[in-house]
Design a protein around this nucleic acid. Structure first.
Lengths: 202, 202, 202, 202
DNA sequence: CATGAATGAGTATTCATTCAT
DNA sequence: AATGAATGAATACTCATTCAT
């Protein structure tokens, strides 16, 4: 079994190297301009090896995107904080993760490929929008249950919050490469949360 | 001058034909996949003529994008309507214009090209986001002046409204080709405006 | 019209050069091994130009094959010769044409591609077998009409003659590259014709 | 010796599996398009093992072809039948063997490879043409010796028969994949033999 | 002895751009 | 001024063969 394990580990390492090189290249050049040969070269692998692991450029890109989903987030909700602080905290964690992992740049490319790879668009929407909204809605539901927020349509409430957050932090990042979170991020988030609490707070 | 005028008008007609063919091709195939030769063919022009008018594919695309800015919108603000109705009306006009002119599909392509054509991204952001927000803010300012809305930071108010509208009507359209405005568009817009008026109404 | 004519003549010349280079390469290397890039280079043309003229390697090959059909043959039948001499003469003309134009080598390649390009096989069979047999049958029919041959099934008679001729002169050429007509060709053909006349002569 | 025998038998089995898989692949895809990796997979062997048995794709193909020679044919000549029936019988056995064993498809591939593998062409010609003709000639010789046929050049006679048989049953099969023996095969063979007997019968 | 991962050289085809006419 | 033929560089993908384990 030593041989098999050895092979698997080598293979996994190459696969990871390809994914990383692919990610870098796609982020830098976009999907169409990124060259499979260069990705292979950057990963210190022959193109043929790359094609052993991923049967096409498209599949490699899909794998790169899927790879971005994998990081788990915000398990517990801390007690003893105000509703406002809690929501600000949750949203800031979203945002930092989004920026650190360069999800915005990835979004750009996926959006560009929506007409030719619709499934990829749907998947990414599901994973980066719908799922997060589900998580946030469940938090709001619990706060409602605890009497800390009014009865409300949490589906809509989530989108209200999400809308203003995207407005400030995602939308501009789509139109400018290498955007970083602005200095007044927390202030803006806090303002948005405050409005929300004004409307829907207990 | 007759000959010169004739020549100019022919030239302008060709230019318009190229822009239209370019628009169609870019919208259908995206930037990279769209072929200059096909655009020229669709415009009934030789490739050389196309290159006389636009020095590169990139410039042609930029011109196509700029062309989309040109359509004027919502001149007058009707009097004698409630603040709510007025805002709903204005927003719906934005949305219909956005969908009818396929701005979402164009946005997709511009977004994709942001890393390689940053100026284009900035321009489009300026023209489709900032400008509109300025218009809307001036409307809000006037409403504040008339005492129909509270004193407020209209810059922020506009983005609150814009965020929720994009959340529902632009964001999903980026991730799905050929999306049309949903049937309950007006209801959603009205709900958003109602929330806004609750917070900032006089 | 000078420009147009000039362009056409240049274009035709290039087309001919490509066909010739294609023919040479296919004959030397077979279909699969022949490289489009090398054909283009031999024809002093870029690959893109080659693809303007022929939309694919397969189409180029088909054109090369079709080109081989184009040479017209044996219009008149001389009078005042014996039936035997006449037939020997006709058959020898077939054979020389077949060898000079390297039809055998072309046949080899077409045969190889029959599973993947069945239409090409059918076309070549039609043009190099069926058509010739029709010509020869019409000759035999006229000889029968003149009373120089017995009443007979000329369809079958033609295939009897064709079979023996292929047996000696085509079949071996399929299995050996650059085969030339053997020295005793005429003697063998004469023997075959003699047998035929023994069976079917008046 | 038990272990050695076991090993040899395993090795032989693998070799046979490779040959069979090779045959199937070459027949299906032709020489160039057939992929060594797929042959190995079909044979349940690693590519390295395949290369242990056959040092190159070309050699494997040669072995596949040689394998087709190995089936023995028509040992005894029945007595007490007419010359005509005897010859018809012999020829039909040739033909059925040729079609059942897909020799025509194999011929196609060998013919295609003649320029690059001339020896293979010569071998196949020797084994599928010359050898058979020798067998048939020896039968004719015996018939002449028994006084059932005239004195004759049996070399030539054999090719007369062979020519007409190929004309009807091999030649068309080269130009059409998956051809089967036509329904009137026996009638045609009988007609050919009858002509031959007319010419050369006692 | 057997493996299968890895390779490098090669393939057909495309496209933005130029230039002789 | 307008053409459209021509190009050269690039691209995704394949495959016979080898070699470390």
């Amino acid at each position: 079994m030593g041989l098999e394990n050895y092979r698997r580990s080598v293979s996994d390492a190459k696969c990871a190297a390809i994914l990383k090189a692919g990610r870098d290249n796609f982020l830098r050049d976009g999907y169409s301009r990124a060259a499979v040969a260069e990705i292979a070269r950057d990963a210190d692998v022959s193109t043929a090896t790359l094609y052993k692991h991923f049967t096409s450029k498209e599949e490699l890109f899909a794998a790169v995107v899927k790879d971005a989903y994998l990081v788990g987030e915000y398990e517990g909700i801390p007690e003893n904080v105000s509703v406002e602080d809690l929501l600000v905290n949750v949203i800031l964690r979203y945002l930092h993760s989004q920026y650190e992992r360069q999800i915005n740049a990835l979004l750009r490319i996926v959006i560009a490929e929506v007409p030719s790879a619709p499934q990829l668009g749907r998947d990414m929407f599901e994973n980066f929008v719908t799922t997060r909204y589900r998580d946030l809605a469940s938090i709001l539901d619990r706060l409602v249950a605890r009497g800390l927020l009014k009865q409300q349509d949490t589906q809509y409430a989530v989108r209200l919050l999400g809308g203003i957050v995207k407005e400030y932090f995602v939308w501009p990042a789509l139109f400018e490469a290498n955007k970083t979170l602005p200095a007044d991020t927390e202030a803006i988030v806090r303002q948005a949360v405050r409005d929300y609490v004004l409307l829907y707070g207990a």
